[in-house]
Design a protein around this nucleic acid. Structure first.
Lengths: 121, 121
DNA sequence: GTCATTACTTACAAATTTGTTTGTACCATA
DNA sequence: TATGGTACAAACAAATTTGTAAGTAATGAC
């Protein structure tokens, strides 16, 4: 994404990680924001400003960066309307839709295990 | 994990992210290594050195760090045998086992979409 | 007595990710 | 003429993650 990296261990590991189907997929939705963004867009298409409201403290920069990356990976589709105050809508692509059931299961795991933590400790 | 952070946006966002069931779960397996480690341990318990061999370029430090974090989150169980050259075995806990079907689906997504990329572009 | 083995630890450094601040273009409205 | 709303971009800075290199403890083999 930025300046190219050499043949460091960092890069070799990265290659290893993206060669594997599992981590290839995981990387597409890795980081702090991508999963939640995709999940929100799973309900309906949203404008930039609507997304921003969903995450009270996200910086505009972060939101743009994540959306750009998701667009690049063809997980979201970006539509610009040539209107006076600009309007841009984001929605999931078909391949991103396939993540939604996985998110459901992850979410169920999270819910269950957060509950265990509370009663357990 | 290190020195405590203040009430920065970074932290507020972190809180937001770990409050959500979905991202709470995602964070448990986030980063470069956790998912693959868990996946490998899904087949059978492994020693430290065996795990290391699975990932040709991982540093021992990284492997220990990840294993410690997974142990902390009760996703792996660590067993030390008081033998002469030390022996330590790692295995999944019941709650980690529940991730395995999710990994399968992720992996399937990865496989499918890597194939699409090749034929598409 | 020296070396090898295993599973680490420590101090350090590089790379990446995330956040802050300021600014832009467009037109409408006051 | 000044201000406001939308969806960003650019330069900079902080925080976290990942990697490097060297060292440790115990013990048995040579």
């Amino acid at each position: 994404m930025t300046a190219r990296k050499e043949n460091s261990t960092y890069t070799l590991n990265e290659k290893f990680i993206t060669d594997c189907d599992l981590t290839y997929a995981a990387n597409k939705i890795g980081g702090r924001w991508k999963i939640v963004i995709l999940d929100k867009l799973g309900d309906r298409k949203l404008r930039f400003s609507e997304l921003k409201k969903e995450f009270p403290y996200i910086s505009e920069r972060m939101l743009t960066l994540q959306l750009r990356a998701l667009e690049q990976d063809e997980l979201v589709k970006r539509t610009v309307y040539a209107e006076v105050p600009p309007r841009v809508e984001y929605e999931l692509t078909p391949i991103a839709l396939e993540f939604l059931p996985i998110f459901c299961q992850l979410s169920a795991w999270g819910k269950k295990n957060k509950a265990l933590k509370k009663s357990g400790s």
